[in-house]
Amino acid sequence: MTPAVTAERRRRHTLYFLEWAAAQRPVHLDTDIDMSRVLAHRAAARADGRRYSVVSYLLYATGRVLARHPGANAAMAPGWPGRLRRPRTVRFDGVTAKLALDRPVEGERTVLSALLPGLETATLAEIQERVDRYRGEQAADLPEFKGVRMLSRLPVPVGRAAFGTALRDPRRRAAAFGTVSVSSLGHRVVDGFHSSGGTAVTLCAGRVVDRPVVRDGAVVPAPVMRLGLTFDHRVIDGAAAADVLTDLHDTMEAFHEGADGTGPDPRGADRDPRPLRGLGQGTR
């Protein structure tokens, strides 16, 4: 029984989060993104000795898009629902992503949440540098995960109370949880998924895989990534969430060399106007 008890202790912060996030009202959207330009940029960068992960491109686009949609970079103020409280949302000045990580903590696989602030202005290289910080096997020992380690040691009633107190103020919540959640399972045979990360918008990226698409009346292969967007219906409505997803779709598909922070905004720059229409599952 000892191994089971150990695993439960490592997951206490996740269990506290799920209890807290149960108040959300999640609604799910998704879209397919043609990753041709992203992969071309990634290959060219690799030839120059630079390495960018797919999730870094998504983080880059997320920062720019949420800066253009401040209503989605927000949170429900504490105290709602309440008989004497009116609903109120808090908008955040900057974009901070909470990136979900699968990392070992004392020998047990655990979900850790790394914060990447300032995404609205960060370059692709800066984002990748931050992501690389959390790639190592010893990432759980970094000082930013001190709170997670502490929660695993506290008695459950104390840990639950400490977790709730830390999230009571929306500004402190942003510092602890970010303003948008990003998760990727694209390293496995996962085409798409949805989760609710405790923020107004949660983005879930699947794998990039060649799929048949229609361009100019012809069926051609294209590298496609399915992107899920879960939104908290208490904070934004479906039309606003659809606008965010559309902007993300267009920004990713229009990615070009200048998008690394050295040139103009990537939206619409040399963008292929031809529609991408999927014909099914495609190749694995």
Rank of each mutant, 00 (worst) to 15 (best):
M76S: 07
V158D: 01
R234E: 12
D237T: 12
I236G: 09
T89A: 12
W20E: 09
R51E: 14
G159F: 06
G258T: 14
R64M: 01
A22R: 13
R160G: 09
R42C: 09
V111H: 08
L99H: 05
A75L: 08
E137Q: 15
A205F: 11
A242R: 12
R103L: 15
G107N: 08
S152A: 15
G228V: 10
A242D: 12
P104W: 11
G206S: 02
L142G: 13
P170E: 06
F163Y: 13
R68A: 12
T199H: 06
R68M: 06
Y57R: 10
L15N: 03
H69N: 00
R91Y: 05
R68K: 09
G118W: 01
V244M: 10
R271I: 01
A44K: 12
D191K: 08
F92T: 06
A125M: 06
M35G: 05
L167G: 02
T165P: 02
V189D: 13
V158I: 15
H256R: 04
V201E: 04
P104A: 03
R172P: 02
I127K: 05
G278M: 05
R12P: 03
H69G: 06
R173K: 04
R109M: 15
H28G: 00
R215F: 07
G136V: 07
A162P: 00
V54T: 10
L18R: 15
T110N: 12
G186L: 03
R10I: 01
